[in-house]
Nucleic acid binder design. Structure first.
Lengths: 123, 123
DNA sequence: CAACTGTACTATGTAACATAGTACATATCA
DNA sequence: TGATATGTACTATGTTACATAGTACAGTTG
């Protein structure tokens, strides 16, 4: 995942790491690259990485041990739940807007079904 | 709908007007308030309104006749379709993300059903 | 002509963002 | 102990977007 887009770089990094925690790409107590290392990898300024880490710590996604490094929080479930709530909220908002646009309930349900590729429900 | 939030004021105005066209609050050939009038109503700078109108014209949502005023485009269906496509795209993205977060298909479908308030499908 | 449209400038100020550079306290390890 | 790595905290600089104020001008309408 590259760092590019409209959002501030440090926020893109925040989003990416939160997403990696939510999707188990990053697990509890995993160590993250140092600010300088991450800066080299992503070709951005160490200060920008530090800003992202600071924000992630504020959100209790990672914890910091000066001299040791930064690590993923012990309880990732909290991050996952917040992430899911956010996604469900966005889903709800999209449905509301579609209804206001004159799209029918049936059309929405049909679209969601099609997203799963057919009629069969496995999960 | 008030002008406040994180997004730039002129973009908030753009979004609002596009939404009003998509939801038939504004209809084809309706005249919009003049830049100065809208500025007074919303308590923002006329230049900011002008910037919004310019962007809306670029997106072909409104058309401008210098000396006469600004009017909603003749074919609002185009705006509606673009709006719906955008919303469907967002919906799809939310579902994808939820699946990546370990949420099951059943849970998502159940959530969507609950959005409609129960088991009965009217529309 | 008078009053209204949208448009186009200049100028000013603010705020966020990103960068470079430096410094410092802490932790780890040879 | 000394070297090196960690996160953190500054200052300074530059860029960009945004919003405002003010002025001016061309076209339209009555």
């Amino acid at each position: 995942m590259a760092i590019s887009g409209k959002k501030p770089i440090y926020l893109q990094l925040v989003d990416r790491i939160k997403n990696e925690v939510a999707t188990d790409i990053l697990s509890a107590n995993d160590q993250l690259p140092s600010v300088r290392e991450m800066a080299l990898q992503e070709r951005i300024n160490p200060n920008t990485v530090a800003k992202a880490y600071k924000e992630l710590e504020r959100q209790e996604v990672i914890k910091t041990l000066t001299g040791k490094g930064t690590f993923v929080t012990g309880n990732t479930q909290n991050v996952k739940n917040l992430n899911q709530n956010q996604l469900f909220s966005e889903l709800s908002s999209s449905v509301d807007q579609l209804l206001k646009n004159g799209v029918t309930r049936k059309q929405i349900e049909q679209f969601v079904d099609d997203l799963f590729g057919g009629k069969n429900a496995k999960n």
